[in-house]
Computed example of a mutant assay.
Amino acid sequence: MELTNLETLAEQQADTINHLKEKIEELGRQIMNQQQYVEERVRSDGASGLKQKRATHKGTRDYFTDSFGYSQIAAVHDHSNYDRTVGMGELNAVLNGVDFRTRHNDYKLYMPSLTKPDYHKTEPIPFPPVPPSVTAKHSVADQIQEMREYFKAFRDQNPQHRNYVPYFKPLLCYLEGAWTTDTKSLTEPFHSDRHFLDAASWFDLQTKVRYTSYTGGKSNSENYSYLPTKITAIRNGTVEYAQWNYRIVCHPVKTNLGRYDLQKVNDVAARFAMRQTNDQLSISRIPRFTFLANHNARKKWYKL
């Protein structure tokens, strides 16, 4: 009799455990559906792109608050004191429905590796040669003066003054993101000489971001990123996670592009906030531009 009761109890416990497993899987699938709902909602709100840069201004009108621009577009700034480095602050971006926030970027002019198949491998963008008329000068001061003439020719788009075209090569730098399966160890999105993810693990990073978001603070070193984690599958009761990550890399452009291949966008909010005309903004870091693929009525797309 006692053995029968034990067997019955064991069967009941096994049924309870199986029932709980089924419910956990159902809840997990519902969480996955909720995540998909959030992403679909973000997708329907607008296309991928820059949503918000770090905010340093406010005022009595909406246009006094930073969005994707204000005093500088995309928080871009100068870092000529570092090798191959483009200054770029924190960003809030959307890629294919994923809303995320970056650390201070300050990315380097690197491109995906041409020799190594590993996704994370990059290599420096090759520099163009120095103009022979510059290297022919016998003093540094004369070389600097001659190089300035090339910059003037580029500014004026005048190859007759100096043939700058072989020495001023355009680059396309872009931000890309993906869901990765590397959820155990924190992986830097890309190399920067100045900034890094200040956390021991993805969980540690999420905890720090949660604290700063709740308290309205930030990392003084600007080394936190909000990079979401989601459930991607549940197999045999085992939950599989995916970690969102991003990087900024560049690509050499084969076609010669000039200043006049770019068209300035009239951002009314930036003009109102700075109390400047569209032409006045042109000589600052404030304006953004669109790419004219059919400049001079040439009905073709440039080949990158």
Rank of each mutant, 00 (worst) to 15 (best):
T60V: 07
R61M: 13
R61Q: 15
R61A: 14
D62P: 06
Y63N: 05
Y63I: 03
Y63A: 02
Y63M: 04
F64T: 14
F64P: 01
T65W: 14
T65V: 13
T65M: 07
D66I: 10
D66N: 14
D66E: 07
S67D: 15
S67Y: 09
S67M: 12
S67Q: 12
F68A: 12
F68N: 04
G69L: 08
Y70C: 09
S71P: 01
S71G: 08
Q72W: 00
Q72R: 08
I73V: 12
I73T: 08
I73G: 01
A74L: 08
A74I: 03
A75G: 01
A75H: 01
A75E: 06
V76F: 10
V76M: 14
H77W: 14
H77T: 02
H77N: 05
H77C: 01
D78C: 06
D78K: 07
D78G: 00
D78F: 10
D78A: 07
H79W: 14
H79S: 10
H79A: 12
H79N: 12
S80T: 14
N81T: 10
Y82A: 10
D83E: 13
D83F: 09
R84V: 08
R84N: 10
R84L: 13
T85N: 09
T85E: 15
T85Y: 03
V86M: 11
V86Q: 10
V86I: 15
G87F: 03
G87T: 03
G87K: 06
G87A: 05
M88R: 00
G89N: 06
G89P: 05
G89L: 04
E90R: 12
E90S: 08
E90Y: 02
N92R: 11
N92D: 01
A93F: 00
A93N: 08
A93D: 01
A93S: 09
A93Q: 05
V94R: 03
V94C: 06
V94P: 01
L95D: 08
L95V: 11
N96W: 01
V98G: 03
V98Q: 00
F100N: 08
F100P: 06
F100Q: 06
R101L: 10
